[in-house]
């Protein structure tokens, strides 16, 4: 149970970073922290105490297998996360070129 609560705290740390930081790159890092906490939660769900990898050997079956499904899903989600982070970074570099700053308070052309 502690692990789940730690995941949740990590999620909130990321959310705090997204809300309070002013630097674009720090916002991106905070988003990555949130992302990883979600992945961690997902991977923990598949964990079984003392479980082994789910390659079933009929002659010598193990007592507990870990659930392989969340691992596959997290792997897929990591690939998506790679794409999102790359996209965000490209946007940040472009923004820096246009505005000459990473400070989000200076970047406010759009309002209303």
């Amino acid at each position: 149970m502690t692990a789940y609560i730690l995941c949740f705290i990590l999620f909130l740390v990321g959310l705090y970073g997204v809300i309070t930081r002013r630097n674009l790159v720090k916002i991106a890092i905070s988003l990555s922290v949130m992302e990883l906490s979600t992945f961690l939660l997902f991977a923990l769900i598949g964990y079984a105490d003392g479980g082994v990898a789910p390659i079933v050997d009929p002659s010598n079956p193990a007592k507990v297998y870990v659930d392989p499904m969340p691992q596959a899903l997290v792997l897929t989600a990591i690939v998506i996360g790679l794409a999102t982070t790359a996209m965000l970074m490209a946007t940040i570099i472009r923004l820096y070129r246009k505005y000459g700053t990473f400070d989000i308070r200076e970047i406010k052309n759009l309002k209303g």
Partner: peptide
């Protein structure tokens, strides 16, 4: 770029 950045942060959330 600014609109896309806003969209990306909220969309990722």
């Amino acid at each position: 770029l600014e609109a896309s950045f806003k969209y990306q942060v909220l969309g990722s959330l």
